[in-house]
Simulated scan of single mutants.
Amino acid sequence: MPLPFLTADHDFEADDDIALPFDDHDQWRRPYRPGPWRVGIAALALLLASFVLLAAVIVTVAGATGGALFTFGVAALVIGAALRVLRMGVWVSRAGLRHVSFFSTRTVPWAQAAAVRTTQQPVRWLGLPRTVQGQALVLVRRDGEQAPLLTDHNADFLSRVEAFDRAADTIEAWNAEYAGAH
């Protein structure tokens, strides 16, 4: 079963000179591959869900319908959370830039994006409260609001500096292509 949110639909290492490598710019795409931390967290959650589903089957065979429904519900929540973790990140299309977090999704049209730039600043390590000095890709909106999109210490780019630089360059190229057109 293909999982399109796991792939970047393009081999970035082969064509580093192509800034906007996709044929269909109207489709929302993540311009980078999910990192090993993000995939590992999702895999562990799915492993936990498999054990919970096994427990639900055992509870069903034992005849406790209420407990079985509750256990199946817990398994569905864990599977949903794992899939949401895999969808987290920055997505781009001709329509704008979409920042997907665990509980919310914000879409900014390119007309509202003044700049997308990389800055040195304190960043959160794997999304935890601890901060370290690092790089962040920041979206500057036309109203002056700044929002960090990616950091080199998040679950996609921890210990993958080249991948962060490539993703930041690609997102900046999308911004230059479409924000300049408005």
Rank of each mutant, 00 (worst) to 15 (best):
A147H: 12
D169Q: 15
L53W: 13
L128T: 14
I58Y: 06
R94H: 12
A136N: 09
E177Y: 08
S104L: 06
W125A: 02
F5G: 00
R29S: 03
I79P: 04
R141Y: 03
V57T: 11
A55Y: 09
G63S: 06
L48S: 13
P109M: 04
R94Y: 06
Q27S: 11
R130P: 00
G67N: 11
Q146G: 03
D17T: 15
S101F: 00
P34L: 06
F51T: 05
I41L: 13
D165S: 10
D26L: 04
R87A: 05
D152M: 01
A114H: 15
A147S: 14
S159C: 04
R98W: 04
L83W: 12
D169S: 13
L69D: 02
Q146L: 00
L126F: 03
G40P: 05
A62S: 15
W91T: 02
W125F: 11
A55M: 12
D16Q: 14
F70E: 10
R94P: 00
G134R: 13
R106I: 07
T131W: 03
S93K: 13
L158N: 08
L137F: 03
T170F: 00
L149I: 08
A62T: 09
Y32Q: 07
V116K: 09
W125V: 08
R166C: 00
Q120N: 11
Q146A: 07
L158M: 11
Q120E: 15
N154T: 05
V140L: 13
V92H: 05
G180N: 15
T65G: 01
Y32F: 10
G40D: 14
T118W: 00
G67K: 13
L150R: 13
A62M: 12
L97N: 07
V78P: 02
T131G: 00
W110F: 03
G80Y: 11
F102R: 08
G63E: 14
